[in-house]
Structures are given as structure tokens and as C-alpha cells.
């Protein structure tokens, strides 16, 4: 027994040895900052000095129309962009998997290509393409679809459309890859049986493909929603280049928080307080993910 105990202790020590570097980095750069934010939310900064204000930051947040407006934008983008992207990703995945045989690999590669770009790089490319005097306007005018250039990046409605188009360009192929993997896991015999029973292709899609892909679709839905909730790079680069501006048609919550903390007021207490709302929403999304996706895997 004593030998056994010594061996267990040896194993336990070895285990701690392997995880120690990660644990140290985790404590310093993740756990401590998160815990210290509990202190930050109770402070108010004026210039370089800060003082205790209790729940004052929360009260201020509730009355901050610009913040709720920005968060509202996140939801608008989410509700419109995510379904469009997931529908397209699903359509392309089914096209590649069931519709064609030749060049399947090539199309898959090309459709995934946008996903390798950095968010800043593709946002800059879109910004230049969509400038008032840019290629998009020139092309549309030459084709006779526009009489005069339009402000893709500044007009409230058009700027939102721009962000939606950009996000869809960047992420459709990425989500399509998940759906393709999902499709590969469906037994072809199910389709053969349906074929024998005389089910149409459309019928097969709604009766077989879609129900069997529900877990993958939910996964895409949750990750995309969570990504849109944290949207920062695209609106900062593409549609809100003026760094000291706190409102705009495509201002998002993360961008508003960043500008409050680093561009406009450097009030970290208030910025941290607002970030708690995003944490809360992300937590709810994660809960949904575990509840619905985790349950399915059992």
C-alpha cells in the first residue's frame, strides 16, 4: 500500500509538472484580469485618477442610448446576416455534395478561399472596392444600374448592407465546410431507399438532409451569432473609420466599448461594465449550445 501511495503521488506530481506552465500563464493573463474586472466596474476614471462609484457605472449604462443603439445594431446584423449566410452555405454544400462530381474539390477550395483572409485585410479590400469613386460604383454605372455613385460606406442603410455582404463573403465558405463534413456523415443508403420509394430531390432535402444536419446547423448558428455579437474589425475598418466617433449606422457594442476605453474617454470602469453585457449574452448563447448540442451527442 505504501508503495502504491508513493507511486500515486509520483503520478500526481508529474501531472502537475506538465500542466504547470499553462496554469501559470492562465492565472496571470486570464484569471487575474477577469477577477480584477470586478474591481474595475466599481470605479470611475477622471483623467488618470479613479474613485469608487459603486453601481454608478451600471446606472450610467442603462441610460446610455448610444450603447444600446450599438448593441441593437449587433442584433439587426445578426438577425439578417446569419440566416442568409447559413442558407447559402447549406445550398452550396448540397450542390457540391449531391449535385456535381467533376471539379468538386476545386470548387470547395475556391469557396473556402475567403476564409483565409485576415479580417482587416478583407475589410480594407472591400472598403476600397466600395468607395464612392471605387470599382463597384463604376461598374454599376457602366452597366446602367446606377445613375450616380452611391455611398456604400456612409449611407445608414447601405453601410449595413455593406457589412452584411462583407461578412457573408468572408464566412459562407467557412460554414460550408462544416456542412460538407455533416453531409459526408449521412449514409448514402438512406437516399437510395428514398429514391426507391419515389421521393423527389426536394423532398429528400427537406425530409433527410435537413433533419440530419440540424446539429451542424445549430453549431454554425451559435458560433456565427456569437461572432456577430463581438463584431469589431469590420465596422472599425470598413464603415466607421473616424476613430473618435461613438455613433454610426454600423456601430457595434464591441466597437463602442473599445472607443470609450481607448479613443474617447479612457474610462475603463465604464467600458468594463458594458463588456459585462456582452459576457452575459455570450454566456446565454453558450448555454443554448450546451443544452441543445450537448444533449444531442448523448
Amino acid at each position: 500500500m505504501r508503495v502504491q501511495g508513493a507511486f500515486q503521488r509520483y503520478l500526481n506530481r508529474s501531472g502537475w509538472f506538465f500542466v504547470a506552465p499553462a496554469v501559470i500563464l492562465f492565472v496571470v493573463f486570464m484569471a487575474y484580469p477577469i477577477l480584477s474586472s470586478l474591481y474595475l466596474v466599481t470605479r470611475r476614471w477622471k483623467g488618470l485618477t479613479d474613485s469608487f462609484i459603486g453601481l454608478g457605472n451600471f446606472a450610467r449604462m442603462l441610460n446610455d442610448g448610444l450603447f444600446w443603439h450599438a448593441l441593437g445594431n449587433n442584433f439587426v446584423l445578426m438577425v439578417i446576416q446569419v440566416p442568409i449566410m447559413i442558407a447559402l452555405a447549406l445550398i452550396f454544400a448540397v450542390m457540391l455534395h449531391h449535385g456535381i462530381r467533376r471539379f468538386r474539390g476545386l470548387f470547395r477550395l475556391i469557396l473556402f478561399l475567403p476564409a483565409i483572409t485576415s479580417l482587416v485585410a478583407y475589410s480594407i479590400l472591400f472598403r476600397i472596392l466600395l468607395q464612392t469613386n471605387g470599382l463597384a460604383n463604376n461598374l454599376l454605372m457602366q452597366m446602367g444600374l446606377l445613375q450616380q455613385p452611391v455611398a456604400w460606406l456612409n449611407d445608414p442603410l447601405l453601410a449595413n448592407i455593406t457589412i452584411i455582404v462583407a461578412l457573408t463573403w468572408r464566412w459562407t465558405g467557412y460554414n460550408m465546410i462544416f456542412f460538407l463534413v455533416g453531409l459526408q456523415n449521412i449514409d448514402p443508403e438512406i437516399y437510395e431507399a428514398a429514391e426507391v420509394d419515389g421521393a423527389s430531390k426536394i423532398g429528400q432535402f427537406f425530409r433527410i438532409t435537413l433533419p440530419l444536419l440540424v446539429p451542424v446547423i445549430l453549431f454554425s448558428l451559435v458560433t456565427s451569432t456569437s461572432g456577430t455579437l463581438q463584431l469589431f474589425d469590420e465596422p472599425n475598418v470598413l464603415t466607421n473609420p473616424n476613430q473618435s466617433q461613438l455613433s454610426g449606422p454600423t456601430m457595434t457594442a464591441a466597437l463602442y466599448i473599445y472607443r470609450q476605453a481607448f479613443q474617447v474617454s479612457s474610462d475603463f470602469g465604464y467600458a468594463t461594465t458594458m463588456s459585462y453585457v456582452i459576457v452575459l449574452l455570450a454566456g446565454i448563447l453558450a448555454f443554448i449550445q450546451i443544452r441543445f448540442l450537448g444533449g444531442r451527442n448523448k
Binding site: Y32, I34, L40, A254, A271, S275, I278
Partner: peptide, 9 residues
């Protein structure tokens, strides 16, 4: 944890 919430502290 959303990135924006971690980077402030």
C-alpha cells in the same frame, strides 16, 4: 469569454 471583456483588464 468575449475578447472585448478580457482585453480591458
Amino acid at each position: 469569454m468575449p475578447q472585448i471583456a478580457v482585453i480591458l483588464p
